Amino acid sequence: MTREDTTGTAGTAPALWPTVDELWSRLEATSRHPGPEGVLLRILKLSEEVGEVAEAVLGTTGQNPRKGITHTWDDVQSELCDVAITALVALRTLTPDALGVFERHLTRLRERPLEPPV
């Protein structure tokens, strides 16, 4: 992904970080739980979203015989997007430098070797 892809100057997709900031602002403006409680609840929202991914995977594979196939892999993709967006908004809730924190962490991950040390 190029820098242009994350800033919205390439393609037609919305710019990632400005959109995260916008979502964060909208949530902050309507929050019923400001302060530390709101931060914790926003982070806890991740668990709910991950659960929805699991539900979609189980629904895609028909693991619940009583329900059968209730989801598609497109549903799983959508739920995974919700997890990613929720995580980025939670990160933005913790710091106004969410982009910098994310980029530094991504750089560390990219530079980390995949093989175990010998």
Rank of each mutant, 00 (worst) to 15 (best):
T7F: 12
T93P: 05
A87L: 05
R112V: 11
A54L: 13
D75Q: 03
T7K: 05
R112T: 14
A15T: 07
V53P: 00
V39E: 03
V83H: 07
V118I: 15
L16R: 06
R92E: 01
A84V: 15
T107C: 07
A13N: 01
T95W: 04
V53M: 03
P36I: 15
G11V: 11
D75Y: 10
S25D: 08
E28Q: 14
V39H: 04
H33G: 03
T9E: 02
E28D: 07
G38A: 09
R104Y: 02
G62I: 09
L58Y: 13
V57G: 04
A98D: 00
V20H: 00
L88K: 11
P14Q: 08
H105N: 06
V89L: 04
T9R: 11
E55T: 15
T95V: 15
E49Y: 05
A10I: 15
L46M: 06
L94T: 14
T19R: 13
V83N: 00
H71S: 09
G68I: 14
L88G: 01
T107P: 02
E48W: 03
P117W: 04
T60V: 15
T7A: 05
P117Y: 11
E111G: 09
R42G: 01
P96L: 11
S31I: 12
G8A: 09
A98W: 01
P34L: 14
E111W: 04
G59H: 11
E79K: 08
T107E: 12
Q77K: 15
V118D: 05
E111H: 10
R26N: 04
A98C: 07
A87M: 02
V53H: 06
T70L: 10
T6W: 12
L58A: 09
E115P: 00
E103W: 04
L106I: 12
V101K: 06
P113A: 12
L16I: 14
A15P: 05
S25A: 12
A98I: 06
L23H: 05
D82E: 08
G11P: 01
W24V: 04
P18S: 03
F102A: 02
R92Q: 01
T72C: 04
T19Y: 01
P117S: 11
